[in-house]
Amino acid sequence: MKVAVIGDEESEVQVLEQIEEAVRERQDQVVVKLQFPDGKLNSLNVRNAIHSYYKAEIINYELLIIQYDGGDKQRIHRKLTMSFKNQNGAWYTESDVFYNRDPDHQNALEKIDSLQNNLDGILNVEYVGIAIPHTYNTFRLNPFPGAPSMPAIATGQNRRPQIAPYLIHWDVTYTPHYYIINWNLHLRLRCGAIIDFNIILDVLSR
């Protein structure tokens, strides 16, 4: 496997962007190795940032080994987290992004079910799951860029859609509601946070 060398950057955000760029062409590989010969992995902040978005192992503060699934899940998660912070920095948010196939899909739903059971009556948590396609075909570009965003409408079905991308939103009784993710739509959660579907599709359409 070819080893990519990452150039010198100052912030952990820039390092993450460089990692994404380096591994984007390796979407068919399960494991990606990146070499950092300049000591950036000595920074605790950088290492914490990497572990926040990637399943990674760091060896001798130089070699980064990432178990990689294409990176779309991590990119969507990070962009949604940044969006929530921009809306209200006091919110604690956690989005679960998964591929529309098992075991990834099943693991995500089991994780959410466990959280609902363990935190019920303790914390007021709103649960959202986002299913994205597991193929490498990109989503179509926005046919109407800049158009006003409209509220998304639930499918009204009691089972998940067969084709991703779609979003699952659990109501106060933990009943799931399904939304097809399409351009220029958004979902306002009970807490007031807005999920802009264009954020998700901007990643999938690259």
Rank of each mutant, 00 (worst) to 15 (best):
H186T: 07
N137C: 09
A90N: 12
Y53P: 03
P176K: 08
F98Y: 14
N124Q: 11
H134R: 07
A131D: 05
K55S: 12
D102L: 07
A164D: 09
R140P: 02
I76Q: 09
N88S: 03
Q162N: 11
P165E: 11
V128D: 00
T175Q: 13
N86A: 15
D113P: 02
N86K: 13
A108E: 01
I122D: 04
P151N: 09
V125H: 05
H177V: 02
I66C: 04
R188C: 09
R159I: 03
V128K: 05
Q162K: 12
P148A: 11
I163M: 07
D120V: 15
N118I: 11
D120W: 07
N100Y: 00
L167V: 10
P143H: 03
K55E: 11
L80F: 08
E110K: 10
L167E: 06
F98C: 06
R188L: 07
I168F: 05
G121K: 02
Q67N: 14
P151F: 08
S95T: 12
Q67M: 05
R140E: 12
P103R: 04
Q87S: 06
S83D: 13
P145A: 05
R160Q: 05
L63G: 00
S149W: 10
V172S: 13
P148H: 00
G129D: 01
R78G: 08
Q67C: 04
Q74F: 02
W183H: 06
F144Y: 11
T81C: 01
Y99D: 06
F98V: 07
S114H: 06
W170Y: 13
P176L: 02
D69F: 01
I168A: 06
N60K: 15
W183A: 09
D171F: 04
S95L: 12
K55Y: 03
N117G: 03
A164W: 04
K85M: 12
S149F: 06
W183V: 02
R101Q: 06
Q106S: 15
I181Q: 07
L63A: 04
L189K: 10
A90M: 05
L189D: 03
D171Y: 04
V125A: 02
D72I: 13
D171K: 12
L119M: 10
Y61C: 00
Y92R: 00
Y127Q: 08
